[in-house]
Amino acid sequence: MFWEAPIEQLQDTETWQERQPDLLVAPLPIDLKYSKWIQDLQDHISFRLLYYSSDLNLDALDKAWITQPEAILIDPITEAQMIATLRLIQLNLNNLSKKNIQDKLKQLSLREQEIVQLIRRGLSSKQISERLFISTNTVNTHKRRIKEKLQVKRFAEIS
């Protein structure tokens, strides 16, 4: 999910907890205090940044780079430019997410890895339980723990 937010909303902690964006689309920081605030926030919450600005202010650009944005767009920005930029950022996020999941898969137990492989093949919990000679409840417990360890909501995210 991405969130386009004016500066005033960015400093509202409740709004951050509500939205939990993967990508923040925000105005270019105009002062170092704002940049440092975003940098501090990045230490606690994982998200990507896309800045936009109506003018090319080199001082503001320097301050913005400390927050490591994915991109900075300067007006005039066409709809096509914005869509292309968002697609590239999403592609990058998907690739990073897949790499993180692959790294985490290595940390699963052998049984959990076996269950992941069977899920990828499209087997139901009942079919997995029959194949592995364990109860359906045990399979469901493994599935819940696998999701927790991989930090995913659906198994489609690991396929």
Rank of each mutant, 00 (worst) to 15 (best):
7 I>Y: 08
8 E>H: 12
12 D>C: 04
14 E>M: 11
16 W>F: 09
22 D>Q: 07
31 D>L: 04
33 K>N: 10
33 K>P: 01
34 Y>H: 12
38 I>R: 00
39 Q>K: 13
41 L>F: 01
45 I>H: 09
46 S>Y: 09
46 S>D: 13
47 F>M: 00
48 R>K: 06
51 Y>R: 04
54 S>C: 03
54 S>I: 06
54 S>G: 05
57 N>F: 03
60 A>M: 02
60 A>Y: 11
62 D>F: 09
62 D>V: 12
63 K>M: 10
64 A>I: 13
68 Q>C: 09
68 Q>E: 14
72 I>L: 01
73 L>F: 05
77 I>R: 10
84 A>V: 04
85 T>V: 01
86 L>C: 07
90 Q>H: 08
90 Q>D: 11
91 L>W: 05
92 N>S: 14
92 N>W: 09
92 N>Q: 11
95 N>S: 08
95 N>H: 14
97 S>D: 09
98 K>D: 14
98 K>F: 06
102 Q>G: 06
103 D>F: 15
106 K>Y: 06
106 K>C: 05
108 L>M: 04
109 S>I: 01
111 R>G: 02
114 E>P: 00
115 I>L: 01
118 L>M: 09
118 L>V: 01
118 L>A: 00
121 R>Y: 08
121 R>C: 08
122 G>T: 08
124 S>H: 07
124 S>M: 13
125 S>P: 10
126 K>M: 11
126 K>S: 15
130 E>T: 12
134 I>R: 00
136 T>Q: 15
138 T>L: 10
138 T>K: 13
139 V>K: 05
142 H>E: 11
143 K>E: 05
145 R>L: 10
148 E>W: 02
154 R>C: 14
157 E>P: 03
